[in-house]
Design a protein around this nucleic acid. Structure first.
Lengths: 196, 196, 196, 196
DNA sequence: TCTTAACCGAGACGGTACGTCGCGTCTTTTG
DNA sequence: CAAAAGACGCGACGTACCGTCTCGGTTAAGA
């Protein structure tokens, strides 16, 4: 059965160049923000040819998406055990911190933006963007939802996420206020009081 | 002193060209989204010269900001009177509808984006952007906060806004779900239960 | 010595791939002109791998040359016998027709172009191009010169060819006029009158 | 009436940048041949921006045509007077020399090539190329035909040109032989003998 | 009423980034 | 071991915007 295995082995050059591209893109993204992740800059820094880059990513949008996915730090999940309210609070705190750190917020906002600024003429393009979105959002929400489920049992997870994370988002996007300990606690308590 | 007075009267041409620019920009914005509001497109449609446009707006960012401000519909405020909970609910519903309608969301997201994607080389630029932000946000929040104050008395308005609007934002930006009647009701009730 | 023999017998696959390449190239050449004979297009249409193509032809120039050589129809030679003047006229007419038909002219022009547009960095390259040229020109002129010799005996063949074919070339390349019967007759008569 | 005049005065920058582009292109053309006249190379050498170049020339083909037109030396015309045969011979000699010098031949061949290698999808493109051709050819033939008319009176000028220049072309394009004095004399004499 | 200075349209200009295509070299996998 | 499959570096192309600038022409303001 080695034939089958080998027939599906990828060309190692693909991985080499892809990772070269991605690491260059991530560097540029963290150094200079979204604006810095230029096709030209990435090729220059990675030493990869333009055509090679386009063989991996169909356009700068997908490249940026991949870079974000690479850049985003995993959510620091609270240890299991303890009172549900405490655990929830720690979870929300972690989420707040992640949002506070530039990349995660940038990712979310940028994602939302993409839908606005891209022409998206073809349905093909549109659906690929949607897939992209989903992939990134799932990546972000996955661990969060897992813990949430543990804490809340059979309650509506989507509603809980909206209630718990929405206010953080509002603060950061609209009022530009920090999500401090007190605020997080109020958010958690309001949620528990309401949906208890 | 007529000299003084007349010397301060604006040249009517200024207003004429400014409004021509703005209406063209608003048209383009509502027709084709953010991407369509190009300097070239605006000058072409408005019949205003490039240099004139730049005399009114220092760059495309400010132009877009002005266009958004022009485009955003005012919040449909609930009539005074009635139970506070009902009024709050109607307020949140109106807000949800406004967010649902493309422009408002686009404005918010775009606003958030500006800070991320712009190079912002000088502090000057940065602060002007902040001012811009503030102006638009105030414009959006003003009427909302007014009603909120009426309903809630001396409670923390900022916290209330975060609790009430944040979840709507989360739904639209992250999960892409509609903010239906039921959801709004839960949001309001959770808030009232928690902060009561 | 069978080893020696077999080592000199060509791998049949070589012929198969070469002819596949050539027929694809000829098709493309006649369909879309010089511009269509792309390495990528030829490999795609012939099903031959890139590396295989490059084993047969060192670069696209030689490939195109081979395609032209394959494509060019043989000159329709006038039957032997008859008055020399008539035979000459029929020869010139046939040549005119061949020039009129796109490929022959294209070949001639392209051949001339090669020397101009190629970088020709090495003398090696340059001499190979010259050989290529010679091969194609000989291929074209061979039958023509043979008939010419028959008709003209010991006269200067090169001069005759220049006098007889040059004007056709001029018409086609410079003035874009057709080489009609009358023109050909004048060309022949002028030549005979002058060099008689 | 000065209004009318001034309103038609061209922006001086247009001439400045156009001549900068052209001289750079001519330099490159004479130094490195057709292949060297790259958009990038021209912009680099001329210090003119890419977009400016494209505002003057719609594509590299037209740029190259303009460069050729700039580069081609005028035909050294024979002084008036003297026997017609001598004058004709001097004219043909001059033409031979011009063809011998790279640029003229290159121009002619390149021109012929353009029709072959360009896709020319639209009729618009096709007709513009034809106009281009005509312009360059006229530029080349103009003085030549003038002298020819003087020498030959009412004879068919086009036919004469074909008979006199065609053989030179044949020698240079096909056989790669020099058009020496003796050859030119034979060409002239053949023509005079035939059409006398 | 007549100047005159601000404002205007038109658009050229230098830049930067994009996405595409073709080439010739090269590696990897398969028959 | 040769052929296919195709990744790769390279370099040119033509396009789209940007923000700056140079031009004349026009028009509203103030004398």
């Amino acid at each position: 059965m080695s034939t089958h295995e080998t027939s599906h082995r990828r060309d190692p050059r693909l991985d080499r160049s892809r990772s070269a591209i991605l690491s260059a893109a991530v560097e540029l993204l963290s150094e200079g923000g979204v604006k810095a992740v230029t096709i030209d800059a990435v090729t220059a820094r990675s030493g990869v040819a333009r055509s090679t880059l386009y063989r991996h990513f169909p356009n700068n949008v997908e490249l940026l998406a991949a870079a974000f996915q690479e850049l985003l730090p995993p959510l620091r999940l609270p240890a299991a055990g303890g009172a549900p309210r405490d655990r929830l609070l720690r979870l929300v705190r972690a989420q707040a911190e992640q949002i506070e750190s530039a990349p995660a917020l940038a990712a979310v906002v940028w994602l939302a933006t993409v839908g606005l600024t891209t022409d998206a003429p073809s349905d093909d393009e549109r659906s690929r963007l949607a897939a992209l979105r989903e992939r990134i959002v799932d990546n972000l929400r996955g661990p969060f939802d897992a813990v949430l489920t543990e804490c809340l049992g059979d309650r509506d997870i989507d509603h809980a996420a909206a209630q718990l994370v929405g206010p953080l988002l509002f603060n950061t996007l609209i009022t530009r206020r920090p999500n401090d300990e007190r605020f997080c606690a109020r958010v958690v308590d309001d949620y528990l009081a309401g949906s208890g």
